[in-house]
Simulated assay, not measured.
Amino acid sequence: PDYLARQGVPEGPDDLLRHNCLLLRYPRSPEYFWVLETPAGPRKLEVAGRFDADDSDVLISWALAGRGIANIPRFLIAGDLASGALVEVLREAAPKPSIFGCLYPHRRLQDPKIRRFVDFMTDRCRGAILG
């Protein structure tokens, strides 16, 4: 929040282009972009910032330290949002939801423990997202 007090709260997606965005770096990815769901449809923004990392925990710590704006899945920061340590910006232009997948052997070759684990993680992630 102290970053926003110094720099101002973005009022629209284009305002992010003037902010220090905390960037998640994917291996071998030459670009940084965020896809936001706007009333006009998905919008890809090529954001920039002074800090990048390949670990969301690092991005969260930087956001908590007031170093910029991060695009982090809600389930990872739900407690920080609830406590007010972090604040949501651009609620009307939320990030495009992430899609998770799980690959596992066909039923004939599947260990029952794998199926139980997949079911457990599906329920756990769904509960974290829906709160």
Rank of each mutant, 00 (worst) to 15 (best):
P1A: 13
P1E: 11
D2Y: 07
L4M: 03
A5H: 07
A5T: 06
A5W: 04
A5Q: 12
R6L: 09
R6W: 02
G8D: 01
G8T: 09
V9S: 06
V9K: 09
P10M: 04
P10W: 03
G12Q: 07
G12H: 02
G12P: 00
G12E: 06
P13N: 11
D14S: 11
D15R: 05
L16Y: 04
R18Y: 09
R18D: 00
H19S: 04
H19D: 00
H19N: 02
H19E: 05
N20S: 08
N20A: 06
L22K: 08
L24N: 07
R25Q: 15
R25N: 10
R25V: 05
R25C: 07
Y26N: 09
Y26E: 13
R28M: 05
S29Y: 13
S29W: 15
P30S: 12
Y32E: 10
Y32R: 15
F33M: 10
W34M: 11
W34C: 06
V35C: 06
V35G: 01
L36E: 00
L36A: 01
E37R: 04
P39Q: 12
A40T: 08
A40R: 15
G41S: 09
G41F: 03
K44D: 03
L45P: 02
G49E: 03
R50H: 13
F51M: 10
F51E: 04
D52C: 14
D52K: 14
D54P: 10
D55N: 14
D55L: 10
D55T: 07
S56Y: 14
S56A: 13
L59C: 12
W62V: 09
W62K: 04
W62R: 06
W62M: 09
W62Q: 07
W62S: 05
A63E: 11
A65N: 09
G66Q: 04
R67W: 06
G68W: 07
I69K: 00
I69T: 03
A70H: 04
A70T: 09
A70C: 07
N71R: 14
I72G: 03
I77K: 05
G79A: 15
D80S: 13
L81M: 09
L81A: 10
L81K: 07
A82E: 14
S83G: 01
G84K: 08
G84Y: 03
A85Y: 00
A85Q: 09
A85H: 03
L86V: 05
E88Q: 14
E92Y: 14
A93C: 14
P95R: 00
P95W: 00
P97C: 01
S98M: 10
F100I: 08
G101R: 11
G101D: 01
C102V: 13
C102F: 14
L103C: 12
L103H: 12
P105A: 06
P105H: 04
P105W: 02
H106A: 15
H106R: 15
L109F: 08
D111V: 03
D111W: 06
P112G: 00
I114E: 02
I114D: 01
R115E: 15
R115K: 11
R115H: 12
R116C: 00
V118T: 02
D119L: 13
F120N: 11
F120C: 11
M121L: 13
T122C: 09
T122K: 14
T122N: 13
T122F: 12
T122Q: 14
R126W: 12
R126V: 15
G127W: 02
G127E: 14
G127Q: 13
I129H: 11
L130I: 11
L130N: 13
G131M: 06
G131T: 08
